[in-house]
Design a protein around this nucleic acid. Structure first.
Lengths: 214, 214
DNA sequence: GTTAAAACTGACCAATTGGTAAAATTGCGG
DNA sequence: CCGCAATTTTACCAATTGGTCAGTTTTAAC
């Protein structure tokens, strides 16, 4: 996964973690992602995670202090990756192209990291207690920064005037829908995921282009 | 709530339910909605629901046979309402107007029924075991029917050619985002929900109009 | 007023849950 | 090989969970 968890940052002890510890922790996190992305924080038990990871529950608790730490480790491991595509939006680039590149990057993520997307969605649905700082901190300030950029482009007549923040919400909503609501999309379109994503990309690119071309 | 649960359909006994029973069941369902919409099926306990409803757990179980019945009753109570706006799309109407009316109706629902939207989202995230028939049944066939209608309008040159199903997904995604991800939207825009929705409506109407006007 | 039905409750049950502690096992360095 | 550290496991704990049951209270019907 992009934004592979930097495990060094997550240990409380001054000791450096061994390679085995890193691997074991990652293995636990992978198992945890499977479960948290389905049933959310409260609906996930440590036994479920341990079973999926193929280790005992106390063994799992040897590497993580508890359920909270596992969950927040997962979330923290993805936040930078989530913000990276928006950060990459380049003030020197062609405006429409930059927005379409962002859209494309978000679709790449939805396609490649559906579980992470659902983990995030589950956390938002429960009111985001573990994401409070992120939402009001780095996400908010980055959205503000890029909204100003978009507004500048619009003021220069390089993009049609729209509300930049709502543009971002619509991009997030549309792209993550294919990850989060995959069972709905598949039920309606069938299970050829590649084809579904390809169609979605084409549709969305048209939509954004029609909206923003001046 | 639109689509107020028809309680008569949900009793196993041949006996007609009294007015008090109807009220009590509704009260339980209201409490349950609060909890299920936050923590999903597995993350919700009967004790939580009972506490919120202000009754004992066995009393709650006097009216419903168990957790499953409460959850499915809630979901079933909203499915018709969820489909109604799409059903209302009128083949005799002006195409763009009909699509915009649908968009408007979906935003009305997102604004008025955020908990129901989150209940639905939670169920989808866990793979929708309680929505399987709905997704592959009435939803799928209605989407098929209305996609054919949209395609006909497009073939007549009354709307721009786009993929109708992906248009529906984008409308669902964008509108429900304001309900499902409300904590994110509020963190970024502030907590004036009416204003946020008003801006969103304007933005989306522009987006859909730009996309579909031939 | 009496009786039966409906509604409600406290106590209880087996299983599950997040976790702890001690014992056992494995790995590593000298 | 030995001693110690790291890792894993078994056993256990108090609390929670979805539910059951019997007793009590309230309501409805006559």
């Amino acid at each position: 996964m992009v934004g592979q968890i930097d495990l060094d940052k997550m240990t409380d002890t001054p000791a450096k973690m061994t390679r085995n510890q890193k691997q074991k922790r990652q293995m636990i996190l992978d198992a945890a992602l499977d479960v948290f992305s389905l049933d959310g924080f409260r609906g996930t038990s440590l036994d479920q995670i341990a079973l999926k990871a193929g280790i005992s529950k106390p063994n799992l608790l040897y590497y993580f202090s508890g359920k909270e730490e596992i969950h927040t480790a997962l979330l923290e491991g993805l936040l930078d990756a989530w913000l990276a595509p928006l950060r990459a939006m380049d003030a020197q680039g062609d405006p429409l192209t930059e927005v379409l590149k962002y859209l494309d990057a978000k679709m790449n993520m939805a396609m490649s990291y559906p579980l992470e997307s659902r983990l995030f969605a589950n956390e938002i649905l429960r009111g985001a207690p573990h994401l409070e700082n992120y939402l009001k901190g780095s996400l908010k300030s980055l959205v503000e920064e890029k909204s100003i950029l978009l507004q500048k482009w619009m003021d220069l007549g390089q993009l049609r005037q729209v509300n930049p923040k709502h543009l971002f919400f619509s991009i997030w909503a549309m792209t993550q829908h294919y990850a989060d609501f995959d069972v709905q999309v598949s039920a309606i379109l069938g299970e050829d995921r590649e084809s579904n994503f390809a169609q979605a990309r084409a549709f969305q690119a048209t939509m954004i282009s029609q909206l923003l071309a001046p």
